[in-house]
Design a protein around this nucleic acid. Structure first.
Length: 259
DNA sequence: ATGCCTCCCCGAGGGAGA
């Protein structure tokens, strides 16, 4: 089962690039971030005609997440538990069943800049809520994947110029500690289980020729419960998508699970 | 770099992104 994450930076703006990638990569399950539209305006047909079931958790103009799956999407939930007043659409879950049932959690973790300020406070509070959801997933002792745009650079090797990000909300120590706390509960970073060393990125800024200079950062991740990690066969970043026509500033990352 | 692009809103130019 090929499970992918892709921050598309606007579903309308990616009406050509996203289907092109789907037809080429043929993932079984995809979580999307920054669909930037309400559920009623999401172009479901574009995916249904390719054999995908579609579930969305949208919002006008900003944020918004979705799951596409060639398997039926069961027990769908929307929103990260822990704060009923949170109106930002950043979390969606569903169960897909191939050889095994896998709980899929698609997430768009807050950016958090500028630091300090209310947006950074929201990021850290959101990560504390995510940690509780992560604990509950582990307690289930079932295969589960939390994947999406984490807006976290885990280590210096995950940025071409780490010194430029030192006090940024994506890299400063407090952010990385919150990410590490979740990882240390018992999750596996699927990409790092398969690849070591620097130079692996999932985001390149549109500005200042970042792609041309390979000035990237690795901020899109798949975290696996132990039961999912046991099924891991492969994990890859489709970095060539960044060179296509009208690309997102993120590229897809996917894992192949024996499920 | 409190911003070099690109997205969204809509029908100008500002907020947001990372």
């Amino acid at each position: 089962m090929k499970i992918a994450s892709f921050n598309i930076n606007g579903i309308k703006a990616r009406a050509e690039a996203l289907p092109r990638w789907l037809d080429h990569a043929n993932p079984d399950v995809v979580v999307l971030q920054e669909i930037k539209t309400v559920d009623e305006a999401f172009p479901r047909e574009m995916f249904e005609e390719r054999g995908y079931n579609v579930e969305t958790h949208g919002q006008k103009s900003f944020n918004g997440v979705a799951i596409l799956s060639k398997y039926p999407l069961e027990d769908v939930t929307r929103g990260l538990p822990g704060d009923d007043t949170d109106e930002q659409a950043r979390w969606i879950e569903a169960t897909v069943t191939g050889k095994r049932a896998i709980r899929i959690c698609g997430l768009y973790l807050p950016n958090g800049n500028p630091v300090p300020g209310p947006k950074y406070d929201y990021k850290l509070a959101w990560m504390a809520r995510m940690e509780q959801r992560a604990r509950d997933l582990l307690a289930s002792e079932e295969p589960a994947v939390m994947l999406g745009d984490y807006n976290i650079i885990p280590q210096a090797e995950d940025a071409a110029r780490p010194e430029a990000w030192r006090e940024d909300a994506l890299f400063r120590l407090e952010s990385r500690e919150a990410f590490r706390r979740i990882l240390n509960l018992g999750f596996t970073d699927a990409f790092r289980a398969r690849h070591q060393g620097p130079g692996h990125y999932t985001f390149w800024d549109y500005q200042a020729g970042s792609w041309r200079r390979n000035d990237g950062i690795r901020i899109d991740h798949l975290l696996l419960t132990p039961q999912a990690a046991d099924l891991l066969r492969d994990c890859q970043i489709d970095s060539s998508e960044r060179a296509g026509d009208k690309p997102s500033d993120h590229v897809p990352i996917w894992a192949d699970l024996d499920a």
